[in-house]
């Protein structure tokens, strides 16, 4: 089976580089599945899970603030943060989620509201991947 080289890079350094059979992720415009031989593509990713599939299983990454660059044999995911399930502190994410929810309820001006919303998304994404 053909494979893709996937590398995930963040400002804090490379997170992962390996070959996989398929990448599925959520772009801002909807779910995307990338197989080897895909046409070159650039797409921003939403705060979501990236699933990397290979023969013997799937790896998950919680991605925030990223976009992907696709070439026929290579996928590069650039993100402000990308975490493996083992790096995620679920307890902390839950606390962050509660904090964000509280902030959302106490209606403030729109910038804080947006921020809290993003924080909530990030926390839920982490919990989702971490569990």
């Amino acid at each position: 089976m053909k494979t893709l080289t996937v590398s995930v890079v963040t400002p804090d350094g490379p997170v992962l580089e390996d070959s996989f059979e398929m990448v599925s992720c959520k772009a801002e415009s909807g779910e995307l599945g990338i197989l080897p031989g895909h046409i070159p593509l650039v797409a921003p990713l939403s705060i979501s899970v990236v699933r990397l599939k290979r023969e013997n299983g799937t790896e998950k990454l919680a991605v925030n603030g990223g976009f992907m660059e696709v070439r026929p044999d290579k996928v590069t995911i650039l993100a402000q943060s990308a975490e493996k399930p083992s790096d995620i502190n679920v307890q902390r994410a839950k606390e962050a989620k509660e904090r964000a929810e509280r902030r959302l309820q106490s209606k403030q001006d729109s910038i804080d509201f947006q921020r809290a919303e993003l924080a909530l998304k990030r926390a839920m994404n982490r919990i989702n991947v971490g569990q």
Binding site: S29, P40, A43, G65, F67
Partner: peptide, 24 residues
């Protein structure tokens, strides 16, 4: 000279990408 397809379109990608670029 890589030619890319853009999803959804260039304008929106720039919208996301440029602030990230500046932050980086």
């Amino acid at each position: 000279g890589s030619q890319y397809e853009y999803e959804p379109d260039q304008q929106q990608i720039l919208e996301v990408l440029l602030p990230q670029y500046a932050e980086s």
